[in-house]
Design a protein around this nucleic acid. Structure first.
Length: 600
RNA sequence: GGCGGCGUAGCUCAGCUGGUUAGAGCAGCGGAAUCAUAAUCCGCGUGUCGCAGGUUCGAGUCCUGCCGCCGCUACCA
């Protein structure tokens, strides 16, 4: 492994929308991959800043709040807590997981918006909008249904017909009605501020074209989008969200910044908040105004447009002109856009309303986080849609995680503990001993390179292959047989295997942090390589305090380099890293659970 | 409609810029071993690489058409 200078890495993770709890598809898409990436880079010695939070503005939050009979703020509070706790239990090691209702976020969004306006990238335009006759509230296009004027489909949405796929204008629908209360909407003139995306087209096309390391589908798709840009409304008629910092809009209760503008700004505002929370208010600039920093974004495929086109356009337009930019260098554009595909469930599209869904919290109330992380990495939607089935989850857990890696650890630790009680002192190493150690240590280069390329599935498979190699070595050396007449040789073999396991523990840490920490302790270490995450209470002026998710990563001691396990150290009593699951029982129980929830 | 993807062993999938007898894991069959959560190890695969053409000395890998499935189309990740 070659020495490399420390690098600033921004791990920007998609912001889960706070209109309800998140399900396995969400954490498969942005959560597990981003955390694997962040944990690897921390082990590697790089300076990682991993940020995200709940996205709490926008109409869907208001609609959900109305349905629940609470205020948007109450709904956001409730879901922020649920989502935050799910992510904590999954071990997603954010430096800061915050929310978009903070004063800081609003200020940063307003700075970006105001600057884009002053630079001439935002202009006013009058449009026709739908208003609910019943509530007087503005109805977004997709909350209006009616008969499609093109194909006659009776349940076309205002923005698009699901039957013929044509883009529609809600005013063209035959017999339009509100999806929320069924009443016919009234169409009224309203003025909005638009982001002039075409102004960035040339710059975007040149920039995207140069990103040859992007996954081909992301690059092709983004280029296509950049070639067909239209101005996009950046304000909405509603009273929940960030106030518009433009005179004529500022003082109005019914105008707010459109949620798509504010959500992506979260990557920046969260970095600013993180720096302020730790008492170094300018520290965020080391990532955001540093051309040598690397910015990696993680999201589901439906979010590509916001990360490869819209957010870069905002950054290009802002440069460093506004208040927080302070003339200290342009804000950095994304380097990597790691978008995942979709997870399906027992062969069906995930659907909360139809009960085809597993919420993260429910899953973690019955199963451990590492087996889920293992499954989502080994069999998740990294480059194509993937299906989650309970049978396959149990099989991967039992036949791969437990049988290969878990068993290697268990057979080694029990044998070493029973026969020696300590890490045995090795004699001279044979060629086979040296070879197996060299093979495993080679993983620091091969697995590391794959993770850096965001090829997590291949990286995990390579790590499992190395574990399998060690199993072969153990069987070939048969220390349980040699110990009968050559205790020293058996001790040497066990020492070699313990070292190999100590190496594998590190290779597995980005993927399986919980069991890696357990193994760390079972190998006699007293410190932490992957510890607990924690909450921190943030107080901002007179605003209500709120909790953010963070962790003390600087106290973690793991390093992405070969083990130096000391011989003679006492070994504690071993215990298994993973649980076997009963394939018949688990599958039957879980499918029954889905059936009761309304899933087919 | 536009853009894109997928269709490779029973199952889940690798196969980058075309090149030795097309691979892995799981399942199955046979054997070894018995330290280990009956976990491990060894051996065993005659697959029309969806179909039909084409380019090429040579195609799973490029081009065209067709069949089947799916996604995105500007935020339900």
């Amino acid at each position: 492994m070659s020495e490399r200078p420390q690098q600033k890495i921004l791990v920007a993770v998609a912001w889960p929308y706070a209109n309800g709890p998140r399900h396995l598809g969400h954490v498969a898409g942005f959560g597990v991959p981003s955390d694997t990436y962040a944990r690897y880079h921390r082990l590697r010695g790089n300076d990682v800043l991993m940020v995200s939070g709940t996205d709490e503005n926008g109409t869907p939050i208001m609609v959900a709040a109305d349905q629940a009979g609470v205020t948007p703020r109450e709904l956001a509070d409730r879901n922020n807590e649920i989502i935050r706790d799910d992510l904590r239990r999954l071990g997603l090691s954010y430096d800061l997981f915050t929310r978009t209702t903070t004063r800081n976020h609003h200020e940063v969004v307003r700075d970006i918006f105001r600057t884009l306006y002053e630079q001439g990238f935002i202009f006013e335009q009058t449009t026709v909008g739908a208003v609910s006759a019943a509530t007087g509230r503005t109805l977004p296009d997709r909350y209006i249904e009616g008969t499609c004027p093109i194909c006659g489909f009776p349940e076309a949405r205002g923005d698009q017909c699901d039957n013929c796929g044509n883009q529609l204008d809600p005013a063209d629908l035959i017999e339009p009605r509100s999806k929320i209360d069924g009443t016919p909407p009234v169409f009224k003139e309203t003025s909005h501020l638009f982001l002039d995306l075409p102004a960035f087209a040339e710059q975007l096309i040149a920039w995207i074209s140069a990103q040859e390391h992007w996954r081909p589908n992301v690059r092709r798709f983004s280029l296509e989008l950049a070639k067909n840009l239209k101005p996009r409304a950046a304000t909405r008629d509603l009273d929940w969200g960030v106030r518009v910092p433009v005179s004529g809009y500022e003082e109005r209760e019914d105008k707010r910044i459109y949620v798509w503008v504010d959500a992506v700004v979260g990557y920046l505002s969260a970095a600013v908040e993180w720096a302020r929370n730790r008492g170094t208010p300018d520290a965020w600039r080391d990532w955001w105004q540093n051309p040598d920093a690397r910015h990696a974004y993680f999201m589901g495929k439906d979010n590509i447009v916001f990360h490869s086109v819209i957010w870069p356009a905002q950054l290009m337009g802002y440069r460093d002109v506004g208040q927080i930019g302070a003339g200290m260098g342009p804000l950095e554009l994304p380097d990597d856009i790691a978008s995942s595909e979709y997870l399906t469930m027992e062969g069906q599209q995930l659907s909360t309303s139809r009960g085809v869904v597993i919420h993260v919290g429910d899953f973690l109330s019955r199963y451990d986080p590492d087996p889920l992380r293992y499954f989502l990495t080994a069999a998740g939607p990294e480059t194509q849609d993937a299906d989650f089935t309970w049978a396959e989850f149990v099989r991967r857990n039992n036949d791969e995680l437990v049988a290969n890696w878990g068993n290697l650890v268990n057979r080694t630790l029990t044998s070493a503990h029973r026969n020696f009680g300590v890490v045995p002192k090795p004699g001279e190493l044979t060629d086979a001993d040296e070879a197996v150690l060299a093979a495993v240590e080679g993983g620091f280069d091969t697995v590391g390179a794959l993770i850096e390329q965001t090829r997590f599935k291949a990286a995990l498979a390579e790590t499992m292959r190395l574990a399998s190699l060690v199993n072969q070595y153990v069987t070939a050396q048969a220390p349980w047989a040699t110990i009968k007449d050559d205790r020293d040789r058996a001790g040497t073999v066990l020492y070699v295997v313990l070292r190999a396991i100590d190496n594998l523990k590190l290779l597995f840490t980005p993927f399986l942090p919980f069991s890696s920490q357990t193994l760390h302790e079972l190998l006699g270490y007293g410190d932490v390589i992957a510890g607990e995450l924690r909450y921190e209470k943030i107080v901002e002026g007179d605003d209500p305090p709120y909790l953010v998710l963070t962790g003390d990563y600087e106290t973690w001691v793991g390093r992405w380099e070969p083990s130096a396990l000391p011989a003679g150290r006492a070994l504690p009593k071993p215990r298994p890293l993973f649980r076997k699951l009963d394939p018949v029982q688990v599958v039957a129980d879980e499918l029954e659970r889905m059936r009761q929830a309304g899933g087919a």
